[in-house]
Design a protein around this nucleic acid. Structure first.
Lengths: 235, 235
DNA sequence: CAATATTTTTAGGCCAGCCTAAACTTTTGG
DNA sequence: CCAAAAGTTTAGGCTGGCCTAAAAATATTG
């Protein structure tokens, strides 16, 4: 596949590094300006690789002028690197949306399959599924899909579920994790984009976030509640 | 992706070799018994790789008991290798069919995209597109698709277009090439699976196969006419 | 049937991308 | 402010899959 933003075709590993740097520096949201430098360690953890391997790759990416890398000070994407990372992200999220809407995958299942496919589709394939989907702005997790021109769609204001006030309710806008087990649990509870949740009075009992989904009430571990973003349009 | 037929997960290159051995020994048609040994040279030509590289790979595949390899005598698939090759072929042809029917690719365009994707889809993906398609028995080129149980569908009798008698006609059943330029030419002429062709009187004029497609008459180079198979149900 | 041509194999290298171990910063906290 | 902890880099290796060059085996043909 030809990466349009890069002069030279990139390897799968290189694309993955760029995508991860983007994710770790801005969560695949927000502009290049607001992004912060990413540490070798964090990258190594995320990529399930040793820090020494990361250093090696960062040097290569720096030579290609896809990242700015200063030893011991972390790494940032260059303008070009940012474009490439957004292309990869667009592929990934379009595939997720397509698997969900065209092939009936559950929203919690799509990530792994998209991970496999994202480096292997042509621009033609991307164009066809984008068209089939009607150029969606968000994937099944509520993550924004960069446009063909690599612009991120503006997101309405939203807060983490854990930040809601007692009694407040809102609509799930985004479930911001790729952890398969976390996704499975949330999916099982019916916590998915588009669903209404209500924050229950906190205070007594076991630590955690208490929420109501439809008729059910759950005590959600706080780290999971942090992954769920709800849009402002509360009732 | 897990290859079910092989004990150990195979690399992309290994799967490609197995598929090519199958194609060269039986054309992806016919049983293991009727297949003949394939030479290192032919394999090298087909894979666009040097013979020395082929030797190296064949030794690895022989160790995995996927092929029987005897130096200087060529290579044959074992029972297991044959199964793996059929799995790869099934992936490839299902993807071709899906691209054609679900995403509107032209039948002559699907090969290249399928080549990219075939090693990167899960069994779940395969199952979903097979179901969406209604478990088709042939791909858009008319090539047989192995079933989920890896059985090749029986093919009705057919002959090469070049073998038709003067005035005989028949229906195109299969266009047996992956050459992009050949596919483009045939597609442009409207010679595709399902179309009726009539053999015109030969004899005089430039060498070649003269055919009628709809209202048009063409002089087809013989090597291209050899790629086109027509089914017996002539008029 | 020998001489030449072709095919195949061996031997030695290269590159990408990962690894470990050990050396070197940089940060942290008593 | 200095020692220990945490993070990072260097050096050296490994594997897969490709390469070239040269040697060996087989095939062809006069």
């Amino acid at each position: 596949m030809n990466e349009l933003a890069a002069k030279t075709p990139l390897s799968e590993a290189q694309e993955d590094y760029l995508k991860q740097i983007l994710m770790l520096s801005s969560g695949g949201i927000g502009s290049l300006e607001t992004a912060h430098a990413v540490s070798t360690q964090d990258l190594a953890d995320e990529m399930r690789v040793k820090p020494a391997s990361v250093t090696g790759m960062l040097k290569k990416l720096a030579e290609l002028e896809l990242v700015e890398y200063e030893a011991y000070r972390g790494v940032k994407l260059t303008e070009t690197g940012y474009k490439v990372a957004l292309e990869v992200l667009r592929h990934h999220r379009l595939i997720e949306a397509y698997l969900h809407q065209a092939l009936g995958y559950g929203w919690e299942e799509v990530h792994a399959e998209a991970e496999r496919l994202e480096h292997h589709i042509s621009e033609a394939f991307e164009a066809r599924i984008a068209e089939w989907l009607g150029n969606p702005s968000h994937d099944p997790h509520g993550d924004p899909i960069p446009s063909a021109a690599l612009e991120l769609p503006p997101d309405g204001p939203s807060r983490q579920l854990s930040a809601l006030e007692d009694g407040e309710s809102g609509m799930v806008a985004r479930v911001a994790t790729q952890d398969q087990d976390a996704l499975n649990l949330l999916a099982r509870l019916g916590i998915r984009p588009g669903v209404r949740v209500e924050m229950l009075i906190l205070g007594h009992g076991v630590e955690g976030t208490r929420v109501r989904i439809g008729k059910e009430r759950y005590l959600l571990p706080s780290n999971l509640a942090d992954l769920v973003w709800v849009s402002q349009n509360s009732v």
